[in-house]
Simulated scan of single mutants.
Amino acid sequence: MKLWIGKLLGAVFGYLAGGLLGGFIGLLVGHWFDRALGGGVLGRARRQVATAVFFRSAFVVMGHVCKADGRVTAAEIGAAERVMAHMDLNARQREQAIEFFRAGRDGEADLDEALRQFRRHCRGHVQLVRMFLEIQIQAALADGDLQDAEHEILRRIATALGLSEADFARLESMLGARAAGGGPGAPAGEAELQRAYQTLGVSEDASDAEVKRAWRKLMSEHHPDKLVSQGLPEEMMRLAKERAQEIQAAYDTIKRARGLR
């Protein structure tokens, strides 16, 4: 909702008190009033709505993703439970999350509608959208094997949320590498380095500057405080912090391998 009441009243009363100059000053004062109001009660209310939408959409969509290949495995249920644990849900919230997951799994809650609601309330918050998609990819990878049907529904989700093919491919590759634990047969140190490059979404022949840019971009996207301010439930701070730590650790690994400071 756009805030304009302060600007309108400021301009009107300013004009009545001091003509055009007074109206201009009143408009400026009203603008700052609207900004303060938007960051206060109404700002908090919007964040609460975004949090509620994130919570419901995350588990409804997860149910759809886990059922995409025709069955929901114990590993996928475990992935949903880990997200609940990260969110430190109380008994009532956990029951709600399970109901949302089941509704998605059984097709009782429409996937497209859940995605529309999420995008409408999180419009413009690309970092929040990426975090949402990461949760879904991790759920699909929980059983260690990403089926074609799962890949397609994840791509459908990414498209519906406005992410590019490149962003989706990078996230899928990054999280897939982490789930696989590195290339087959690679020595421990080499496997760790491979995962580090995949985590940052860059190739091994990327320049030092490209690696640094990728690190900075990812750290900005996964900064916990920024995600919370955009509507990520505060209960998921732990997950956001873990992702930021993984990104930092990957960058440190690459720096050591390249002899950078």
Rank of each mutant, 00 (worst) to 15 (best):
V61I: 00
V72L: 01
R92E: 07
V61L: 12
R82K: 04
A97R: 06
T73K: 15
M84W: 13
T73C: 11
A75L: 08
V53F: 01
T51C: 04
L89C: 04
R92P: 00
I77G: 15
K67G: 14
V60G: 01
G78S: 01
A50W: 02
A68V: 11
K67M: 12
V72A: 03
N90I: 10
A97C: 02
F59D: 02
L89V: 04
A97F: 02
Q93G: 03
V61C: 03
V83K: 01
A91P: 02
R92G: 04
A50F: 06
R94N: 07
R56D: 14
K67E: 05
F55E: 01
V72I: 09
D88M: 05
S57P: 00
Q96W: 01
A85F: 02
D69N: 00
N90V: 04
I77A: 14
D69Q: 13
R92I: 13
V72P: 01
I77R: 15
A50R: 09
Q93V: 06
V53E: 11
F55G: 05
A74E: 02
S57F: 00
N90T: 13
A75Y: 05
V83R: 08
G70S: 00
T73R: 15
A91F: 11
V65G: 05
A50H: 04
A85G: 09
T51I: 05
V60Y: 07
S57I: 03
D88E: 08
K67C: 06
